[in-house]
Design a protein around this nucleic acid. Structure first.
Length: 442
DNA sequence: GGGTCGAATGAAACCACACCTAGGT
DNA sequence: AAACCTAGGTGTGGTTTCATTCGAC
């Protein structure tokens, strides 16, 4: 993907749709996302102008480029002079805004990019979005998001939805120049599916999602499997947490290995499911499933902190939430549906079958990856709990049973003192045991 | 059910002596 | 008050001894 629109294969791609994991030109973006109500909810943003494969995350004012998290991190590393560049978070949008509307929120967009839509749009007969416009009636002045003249959000709220609008702008959580996995499937680990409302339990996840592709009942939570699962020793989990090692934990391990692990035997039904039910990230912190995956380190730490207070919950996975709960919060509804949202119920689709099948494949792959990552998160938290309990037990055991030597000098002397039947003897007397020589004189 | 026996297990005692502490000078 | 001396108490580990527990008969 990248450079060329994934849909028309003709025009340069300009925006990135997380839900479709697709790079699209403006016209195709509007075309695809005006197909139905669900696709209108897809959150899109500019495409990274450097790698052309990831959604842009920030806009560098100095370089005048939109960058994804990886490129931003690489290009503005603290060791480089570019680290001082002023960067601002790029807001994403949904619905079917026109290029003019886009340029109104992205001033830099109008200067350089809006011209690119013309040809394709004209070819598509200047696809009307009037039906959207009536509900789009976007008014920058009433939007709760704070954005400056450059059209970039100054990082603010969690749930910026234009009520009554056909499209919305959403901000990406605060930018952190942290490393991100490069081999992650696009769309599976993004910093945001930002449209979360506090009442959301766990948008985008259902019980089926968690269990469809692997049987968590058969997961082996044995401590020995910890190493097998993560490739690290149990004792290093704290280091992993402190050093953000969760990235390597999840990133360097082949997902197929996780699959095989998932197929392993053992019964941790109670613990695993209990944990799954027990983990409920607070929506206000944007700890959604997707943000959990993207801000892995923070999220894990967050889980750990929550765990310390015994208040972990993940009730969104219990299946109690209705589809309406998810949709109300604008989360990707594809996980709730039998088919991806880009597959309208009607038979006549303007989308080529090949593209659709590709999209379905991507959707399934994303779903599978997402499940695996969530599963690993649960296992990791479970192991932290177990390890903590073990450490406490071992500590108490040592405290109780280990003999404490108060005077090392006395111990050193006793260790070299000659004995008879275990008893100390006077210096120079006959002995049957010499610790130094391991010999017996009589 | 109660008593006896052997095996297994754990706790305590023993030893010399350097070190520590308290009291006296 | 500070320095020094002295007597008594303490702790150290390997082995043995004693007490307790448990199962079999």
């Amino acid at each position: 993907m990248g450079y060329i629109c994934d849909f028309c294969g003709d025009q340069p791609s300009l925006v990135y749709c997380r839900s479709d994991a697709a790079c699209l030109c403006l016209s195709c973006d509007r075309n695809v996302h005006s197909a139905n109500a669900l696709s209108k909810r897809h959150s899109r943003t500019l495409l990274c102008e450097r790698c052309n494969s990831q959604p842009a995350f920030v806009r560098c004012a100095e370089e005048k480029v939109s960058l994804c998290q990886n490129c931003d991190w690489l290009g503005h590393d603290a060791s480089t002079s570019n680290s001082t560049h002023k960067r601002q978070t790029i807001i994403s949008y949904s619905g079917c805004p026109s290029s003019g509307e886009l340029s109104s929120i992205w001033s830099f967009f109008s200067q350089s990019d809006s011209a690119g839509e013309s040809a394709c749009e004209q070819e598509l007969g200047l696809m009307s979005i009037s039906e959207n416009i009536e509900s789009t009636s976007w008014d920058p002045t009433v939007n709760t998001i704070s954005h400056n003249s450059a059209g970039v959000a100054e990082v603010n709220g969690d749930c910026n939805v234009d009520k009554g609008s056909g499209w919305t702008r959403t901000s990406i959580p605060e930018h952190r120049p942290a490393p991100q996995l490069l081999d992650q499937p696009a769309g599976s680990t993004y910093t945001s599916l930002p449209k979360f409302c506090p009442q959301t339990k766990y948008p985008g996840l259902s019980e089926d999602d968690l269990y469809d592709d692997f049987n968590i009942d058969e997961v082996d939570l044995n401590l020995e499997n910890y190493e097998e699962l993560f490739g690290v020793t149990l004792n290093h989990s704290e280091e992993l947490l402190e050093n953000g090692g969760i990235d390597s934990l999840f990133g360097t391990k082949d997902m197929s290995a996780a699959d095989s692990t998932c197929q392993g035997a053992v019964a941790a039904e109670g613990s695993s499911i209990g944990l799954v039910n027990a983990i409920q990230p607070a929506c206000s912190n944007a700890a959604s499933a997707d943000s959990v995956m993207s801000n892995k380190t923070d999220s894990i730490l967050y889980f750990t902190t929550k765990h310390a207070h015994s208040s972990l919950s993940f009730s969104g996975l219990t299946g109690e939430s209705s589809a309406g709960d998810y949709q109300d919060c604008g989360a990707s509804s594809m996980l709730l549906m039998g088919e991806p949202p880009w597959c309208p119920p009607c038979t006549e689709s303007s989308i080529p079958s090949a593209t659709r099948s590709d999209a379905v494949m991507r959707y399934k792959e994303k779903k599978k990856t997402r499940n695996i990552i969530i599963y690993k998160l649960c296992v990791f938290v479970a192991i932290l709990v177990i390890e903590g309990a073990c450490l406490i037990a071992v500590s108490a055991s040592k405290e109780r049973f280990e003999k404490r030597v108060r005077y090392a000098s006395r111990k050193a002397r006793a260790d070299v003192r000659k004995r008879v039947k275990g008893r100390f003897v006077k210096a120079g007397d006959a002995y049957d045991y010499d610790p130094l020589n391991q010999t017996r004189s009589c």
